[in-house]
Design a protein around this nucleic acid. Structure first.
Lengths: 230, 230
DNA sequence: ATTTATAATACCGACTGACGGTATGTATTG
DNA sequence: CAATACATACCGTCAGTCGGTATTATAAAT
């Protein structure tokens, strides 16, 4: 294909196609050739000019997604009108309603069956989200009296593990009723530990996830890991 | 190499070598040839006679490990002298002191950097441990009055996520002091939700993990995922 | 301002080496 | 003599490389 005057467009195109394929078929099950085939005339040389390896593409994808998330989080952290507790609640809600994640969910059958992505998701949670966003906000909540907590670091870990993993329907598939029960228990845990609970505003989220999940159950993709591993 | 009269020995040998290599270098970074090289005369034909694929080796490894775990768990579940709460406490303790896991820990730098193993670990937790061991015992505890719980299924998920993931030093690296704080918070959560807490008997575990972790920190293996991904 | 020379970038596509897996053959056991 | 336990040469596929070409950016010279 002819050379593009604006190479960022090519980069975006590669990332778009790769994202879709990685989500739909998994990282291992997507070959560079698969990506090329959907690129509309671009060749292997183009890919390896812009990315130094297949893994590098995956990392760029994750970076692009987390950049969007980080922006939302930053906005909440910076809002001086909110207490620490209020910020934390906002962050929970925003992570549920995350529009980027919405789109990803739509094309991904099950994150547990995409080991590379699962690992990156978890290590991003541990090494990035907790220390840069959650922990500071909890500390703020303790200082302004809106949160009681003896072990901030550890609570930050637990909260993110619950929201990003357990409440993630891509990892723990759940029905609408199941999600309702999870949120109820999550609130119970929060309350008993001196944290602010989630209230309304989640109905839309619950319904969307429920629909997605019932659609998935029809296409029996919820079997064991062997599917994607073999 | 000459044909072995007792082929199970060959199978075990292949599993032993593969386990070590997968733990040390990761699944993707270990080639069949690497395994052959450490097998002492055995060839590719031997491997593919006993296992139908590389992934099949990994599954056999996981099966062997979980078989050992399952046995321990079954013994606790079957003990008629214990209440549900006591059984659950026993299961927590046994999972901490698991001797098989001990050996694995010794050769694995970080589970998050071994995506395939992490996925299998998590999906094993979700699809096997929770429904077959934890949930029935919680139910038993509710029936005999030793546990109070409104959402047994959800609590089973949360408890296993915390013990198998958050309290797993291979996933969440921690110092001795860090582990102490985690266990303290874990107890706080358990207590506030009507569950039995962990008490003594963990000091040895804490010390062992602490030593392992400080040894790891010296060999800077605790960097980002890219290491193993690239 | 236009041309011209040069360098840097964007991309192509044939090729390579390594890998997982297969096929066929052979020796040993039952 | 049938089934099993291997050995080994071979195959297809894949990620990644490399030399090449065409396009654009840079900037000096006219």
């Amino acid at each position: 294909m002819a050379r593009n005057k604006y190479p960022e467009e090519t980069v975006e195109k590669i990332l778009d196609v790769s994202t879709r394929l990685f989500m739909e078929n998994g990282y291992d099950q997507t070959s560079i050739q698969d990506i090329i085939d959907q690129l509309g005339g671009l060749s292997k040389g183009a890919i390896y000019h812009h990315f130094k390896s297949k893994a590098d593409i995956l990392l760029a994808i994750v970076d692009r997604v987390s950049a969007g998330k980080a922006e939302e989080m930053q906005a909440i952290v910076a809002d001086a009108t909110l207490t620490g507790a209020a910020k934390l609640r906002q962050m929970f809600l925003s992570s549920f309603k995350d529009s980027t994640q919405r789109e990803l969910i739509a094309s991904m059958p099950n994150l547990v069956k995409n080991p590379q992505l699962l690992s990156l998701h978890l290590s991003n949670t541990i090494e990035d989200v907790v220390p840069h966003y959650i922990l500071p906000v909890i500390q703020e909540g303790i200082d302004d009296g809106s949160i009681q907590c003896d072990y901030p670091q550890e609570m930050a870990d637990v909260l993110m593990l619950l929201t990003n993993v357990w409440l993630n329907p891509l990892i723990y598939p759940a029905t609408q009723e199941g999600i309702r029960r999870k949120i109820a228990l999550f609130n119970q845990i929060l309350a008993s530990l001196g944290f602010p609970t989630l209230e309304a505003g989640l109905d839309e989220h619950i319904q969307l996830v429920g629909e997605k999940m019932s659609r998935l159950q029809n296409k029996d993709v919820l079997d064991t890991l062997e599917v994607h591993l073999l």
